Amino acid sequence: MFLTEDPAFIPALRAKAAAGARVRLLYGDPTSREVIRRSTDEGIGKMAISAKIRNALALVRQLDGEPGVEIRCHATTLYNSIYRYDDEMIVNSHVLGITAPHAPAMHLRRLSAGDLFGTYVQSFDRVWDTAKPPKW
């Protein structure tokens, strides 16, 4: 939610896509048992994360159909949140009983040596490949 609450977020994504960037937004399916389980595990109420996702989807919906922008939802286990920009990413690990803002986050860069960055790219791509467009 912290990204979609920034008034500059949607215009920035629209501009990046118009300039040729590939923008992929991937959210947990708010109706999936995995999202509901995560919400329960965090102790914030059964449907709290579902409501946050629905709110985020409502805000990004205006980008649906824009050239270069794809939006999908998935129903896989929520191990982490990945925010990637070119050769950098933030990975926010999900920790049982801890809400996302209080869980650890790693700043990763693609380097010529090592494969941690690539591991998270592959993870995202695997989930992306199973995801479907949101049910608006």
Results as ranks from 00 to 15, higher is better:
residue 1 M to K: 14
residue 2 F to I: 03
residue 4 T to Y: 00
residue 6 D to A: 09
residue 11 P to C: 08
residue 11 P to I: 02
residue 12 A to S: 14
residue 12 A to M: 01
residue 13 L to D: 02
residue 15 A to D: 14
residue 16 K to L: 14
residue 18 A to S: 09
residue 19 A to G: 10
residue 22 R to P: 05
residue 23 V to C: 12
residue 25 L to P: 03
residue 25 L to F: 05
residue 27 Y to K: 06
residue 30 P to R: 10
residue 31 T to C: 05
residue 31 T to K: 10
residue 34 E to I: 07
residue 34 E to K: 07
residue 36 I to N: 01
residue 37 R to S: 14
residue 38 R to A: 08
residue 39 S to H: 02
residue 42 E to H: 04
residue 42 E to G: 05
residue 43 G to D: 12
residue 44 I to C: 13
residue 45 G to F: 02
residue 46 K to F: 08
residue 46 K to I: 07
residue 48 A to C: 04
residue 52 K to H: 05
residue 54 R to D: 15
residue 57 L to C: 06
residue 58 A to F: 12
residue 60 V to Y: 01
residue 60 V to T: 15
residue 62 Q to C: 11
residue 63 L to S: 11
residue 63 L to F: 02
residue 63 L to A: 10
residue 66 E to P: 01
residue 66 E to H: 04
residue 67 P to G: 07
residue 68 G to C: 06
residue 69 V to S: 06
residue 69 V to M: 02
residue 70 E to K: 08
residue 70 E to A: 12
residue 70 E to T: 12
residue 75 A to K: 08
residue 76 T to I: 02
residue 77 T to N: 06
residue 77 T to M: 11
residue 78 L to P: 04
residue 78 L to F: 05
residue 79 Y to M: 03
residue 81 S to W: 02
residue 81 S to F: 02
residue 82 I to E: 00
residue 83 Y to Q: 06
residue 84 R to T: 06
residue 84 R to H: 01
residue 85 Y to F: 15
residue 85 Y to V: 14
residue 85 Y to H: 12
residue 86 D to T: 04
residue 86 D to S: 09
residue 87 D to H: 11
residue 89 M to N: 03
residue 90 I to F: 07
residue 90 I to P: 03
residue 93 S to A: 13
residue 94 H to Q: 15
residue 97 G to S: 11
residue 98 I to G: 04
residue 99 T to G: 08
residue 100 A to E: 15
residue 101 P to G: 13
residue 101 P to A: 13
residue 102 H to D: 15
residue 104 P to W: 00
residue 105 A to M: 07
residue 106 M to G: 02
residue 107 H to V: 15
residue 107 H to R: 12
residue 108 L to Y: 08
residue 111 L to V: 05
residue 112 S to D: 11
residue 114 G to V: 09
residue 115 D to T: 15
residue 115 D to I: 04
residue 117 F to E: 05
residue 117 F to P: 13
residue 118 G to R: 12
residue 119 T to E: 04
residue 119 T to D: 10
residue 120 Y to R: 09
residue 121 V to W: 00
residue 123 S to R: 08
residue 124 F to D: 08
residue 125 D to K: 08
residue 128 W to L: 07
residue 131 A to D: 09
residue 132 K to L: 09
residue 135 K to A: 13
residue 135 K to I: 04
